[in-house]
């Protein structure tokens, strides 16, 4: 009986947590399906279901441009981050060079830096250099925050790969680069996927850099663009269209995480336990 009671307790607790986490999401989804004045009707479900908000959002150049920027910048920083992190992690895990630990420690220190403290200086710097309001202008700061974590995750992965596999590849006639690309990287795939997803999420969700380092449709990302949304008239609150836009940018992230959640978990915990 106690076991059954325990299971009931667990179920109840789980439901509570899920409800707590998903209620705002449900609210946003419901909001995005409401028609103009229904938004203020103080009801959870829309009285009149409509996809009008989604159509409107995709007709808004502000949003479509931002969506393009978000995708582009996130992919750019993800790609560069994974490649650089893989090379760095391999070197740290496999090669003997002075200052190896120092590199790892510094990387961690960089990741601890509060985002807000570098936004001001970056704003000035980017305007001088000409990176203000450009894709690289956002991708570079994203890199500096995501690279350390990627390096840590990938170093842990490379460390647990048997060294003999690399030697086997070399004995099979591979160059060191071939051994890295054809054997080590595929074997570290879970780590690579983890690093890629974490980087992508960071870039995709960022608001502070997005709002501070952009000024036009050239590079403004979705989280930043949402702040500039207006309703049908300037007196109307754009809650419904913001909700629709929010749903549009949330869906790919949720999908990504659902597909890869096993990998993320195993990627983050690997190195801690053997398995």
């Amino acid at each position: 009986m106690t076991r059954r009671a325990a299971r009931l307790g667990w179920t109840a607790a789980t439901l509570l947590v899920v409800a707590y986490a998903l209620a705002p999401v449900a609210w946003i989804v419901s909001l995005s399906l409401k028609r103009g004045d229904d938004v203020h009707a103080r009801r959870f479900l829309p009285s009149d279901w409509t996809l009008e908000n989604y159509r409107a959002v995709f007709r808004t150049p502000l949003f479509t441009a931002a969506l393009r920027n978000s995708i582009g910048i996130s992919l750019m920083s993800t790609g560069v981050s994974v490649v650089l992190a893989a090379l760095a992690a391999y070197a740290i895990a496999r090669l003997e060079f002075p200052g190896r630990r120092w590199v790892l420690g510094t990387a961690l220190a960089v990741a601890m830096f509060p985002v807000i403290s570098i936004v001001g200086p970056l704003f000035e710097l980017w305007r001088t250099v000409g990176l203000y309001d450009t894709w690289p202008g956002l991708a570079i700061p994203y890199l500096s925050f995501t690279l350390p974590l990627s390096i840590w995750v990938l170093t842990a992965h490379f460390r647990q790969l048997p060294w003999e596999l690399e030697e086997a590849a070399i004995m099979d006639g591979a160059t060191r680069w071939q051994a890295f690309r054809e054997v080590m990287v595929p074997l570290a795939a879970p780590g690579v996927a983890t690093a890629a997803i974490l980087t992508f999420l960071f870039a995709w969700n960022d608001f502070v850099f997005g709002i501070s380092l952009t000024s036009t449709d050239r590079a403004r990302t979705v989280p930043a663009a949402l702040a500039f949304f207006t309703g049908a008239s300037q007196f109307q609150h754009p809650a419904a269209s913001i909700a629709a836009a929010a749903v549009v940018v949330t869906v790919p992230v949720v999908a990504l995480v659902l597909v890869f959640q096993r990998r993320i978990v195993s990627g983050l915990t690997s190195g801690a336990v053997k398995g």
Partner: peptide, 11 residues
């Protein structure tokens, strides 16, 4: 070379 662990590529 044939290794003690065989060192086959698991993937």
């Amino acid at each position: 070379m044939v290794f003690q662990s065989y060192a086959l590529y698991p993937h």
